[in-house]
Write a protein that binds this DNA or RNA. Structure first.
Lengths: 201, 201
DNA sequence: GGCACGTTTGCGGAAATCCACAATAGGCAG
DNA sequence: CTGCCTATTGTGGATTTCCGCAAACGTGCC
């Protein structure tokens, strides 16, 4: 897993530098982007850390970038920065899943605290995302037939019933079952069920 | 399950009446409370619907009431109303789990929409809470010993292992197992695992 | 054609689960 | 004291699961 990086998106070079300097002085790695469009061109789905986003920018606004990112499956925690934010905008942003919304001028310590909180939050998210990814990888190792059988196992059906439903011999179901457990690296149907339940959590 | 009610907490009788009238005209049941203290004395944990809360009130503020309610296990969705809200306050409220934050003067249609959204949201929460309650009720039917055995079943242990760990005969474990399935109304360890996984979801 | 892989099936046995019938023992309420 | 609940154990059998050994068939690749 990559180390957390705070991505700063602001059209003003002075602001970018000030933020980067502030974060660096507290030991927080950061990377700057001069526009929403620039950041969008990066592969943001793989990133870990957080996103410091100026609301008002020429071209694409921070809000719009936020929406776009969510649309393409990037769930990096976003902290908005704005010079003249109004309550409805802040409320909407947070309801849409923004992590925080800060008005300029900001307090250095408060901002760093929020960034650290966002990074901490994202660490959990990334860990969970990695667990999900590993699980999907295992699931993809299963053949079509094995996935069918697995569903029926999770439905609590006995091998005999599964065999009847699929119109195959019980022995075949047993073989599939064995392969499923092996590939999923579990030793019982209960473990399998618990492993899969982490997906829908 | 009780039908949803919007609880209005505001010290100004005119505001309370206006809100109640507005909601009634849209078919939304409501109940008014003249102060935070008054609402706190109600058994708010059993309520379904939402909470319209004035931020600034004599005595306990809306924000403080909100915190208190969360503290005592009331998770009714809260919509704050404020005459002169600032961004930091709105942000903090939403981060603490408030459902919405509206500035006065409010738009009637927008407010009703938000109330309806909150009520819809709470319907799901109540349904889930009821499921949890039913599950807890079943769990409480289990004796101490049965709960121990259940944990070990969920850990994927075989009856033989459970018997060894508890220092009792395998037959006894089988009896417990049977009782557990009966009381929890499931027919296999897999179903049990899935039933319990709804708790941690 | 040969080879790998997936799906299928059978045989037979070890191990585990499920269950009815039966019984002992302690705690607790009426 | 009696009845109910809980925990415990045993016997014996039906059912199910788990697994090694063996093999047949089709698809797709080299």
């Amino acid at each position: 897993m990559s180390s957390p990086v705070t991505h700063i998106v602001d059209d003003d070079p002075a602001v970018r530098d000030a933020l980067q300097w502030l974060l660096k002085s507290r030991g927080v790695q950061s990377q700057t982007w001069a526009s929403a469009e620039e950041f969008l061109s990066a592969d943001s789905r793989e990133l870990c850390g957080c996103l410091l986003l100026d609301v008002r920018m020429p071209g694409m606004s921070g809000i719009e970038l936020f929406d776009r990112l969510r649309g393409i499956g990037c769930h990096l925690p976003v902290i908005f920065l704005t010079g003249h934010g109004d309550v409805p905008m802040a409320v909407q942003a947070l309801k849409d899943g923004a992590f925080d919304f800060i008005e300029k001028p900001y307090d250095d310590n408060a901002l760093v605290d929020k960034v650290l909180a966002a990074i901490g939050h994202d660490a959990k998210r990334c860990a969970h995302a990695n667990a999900i990814r590993a699980l999907r990888q295992k699931l993809e190792q299963l053949t079509q037939r094995e996935q069918e059988v697995m569903q029926m196992i999770l439905a609590g059906k006995l091998n005999k019933v599964i065999a009847d439903d699929l119109g195959i011999a019980m022995r075949t179901v047993e073989v599939h079952r064995s392969h499923i457990f092996e590939k999923m690296q579990v030793r019982s149907a209960v473990e399998l069920s618990q492993l899969l339940s982490t997906l829908g959590g």
